[in-house]
Amino acid sequence: MTALAALGITLATFGFMEFWAWFMHKFVQHGPLWFLHRSHHVRHPHPVERNDLFFIVYGALSAALFITGDNGGRWWFWVGVGIACYGTVYFFVHDVLIHGRLRFWKKSQNTYLRALNMAHKTHHKTTGRDGSAEFGLLWVSPKYLELARERQSKIKKREIKNE
């Protein structure tokens, strides 16, 4: 397997995972597996929630692809790398930045990350299985990017005015 092919498979898998995460979230987690995902939509004092089982499933899938992938010699090893990379980004953006499950990354002033946060907050306005919007993670609707830009602009204007 060439380095270019390995990189291509990894990046394609990473990109596909955004679509897959959206699809699973909208039609499976807010569908037949709501009994697991529900824990993510309600406040609770526990550091772990049933919804975390999804991380275990994708982690196990990725590990199985690594183990059987002949140390990078088989194409599916690189699919496992793409899944693992997406899972890592998902963890840091969703669990750490948006939900603050680990307190080392404070809210960002980055327009894109603020837009992601706004979209996710919109998703969590509905605590039930039905009626939610914004199911993706890394792709954000342009309307949230515009809102984030407007808020950043207002903050900057206030800062200048207070100087």
Rank of each mutant, 00 (worst) to 15 (best):
R38L: 01
T68Q: 07
A63G: 04
G31A: 07
V42F: 07
V42G: 06
H44M: 15
E49S: 13
H37Q: 01
I67N: 06
V48E: 00
F35H: 01
G69T: 05
S62Q: 05
R43Y: 11
A64P: 03
D52H: 14
N51H: 15
F55D: 11
A64F: 06
E49M: 12
N51L: 14
F55R: 05
G59N: 08
F55H: 09
P47S: 08
V57Q: 00
H46K: 12
F54W: 08
R50C: 12
I67P: 06
F54V: 11
L53E: 07
Y58C: 11
L61R: 05
G59C: 09
H40A: 14
N51T: 12
F54C: 11
H41S: 02
F66Q: 00
R38H: 06
V48D: 04
I67K: 09
E49V: 11
R50K: 14
H41G: 01
Y58Q: 13
W34A: 06
A64G: 10
N51W: 11
H37A: 04
F54P: 06
A63I: 01
H46Y: 13
I56A: 15
V57Y: 02
S62T: 07
F66Y: 00
S62M: 09
V57G: 01
H40K: 10
R43P: 15
P32C: 15
A64N: 03
W34N: 03
D52Y: 12
A60G: 15
A63R: 02
L61F: 12
P45F: 05
W34E: 02
F66N: 00
I67T: 13
L65E: 07
L36V: 09
A63T: 00
D52P: 12
D52F: 12
R38Y: 01
H40M: 10
S62G: 15
G59Q: 08
L36W: 03
D52N: 14
R43T: 15
V42Q: 03
P32I: 14
S39T: 06
H41C: 02
L53G: 15
T68M: 07
S62D: 06
H46S: 15
G31C: 10
E49L: 11
L65M: 10
V48G: 07
Y58D: 14
R43W: 13
S62R: 06
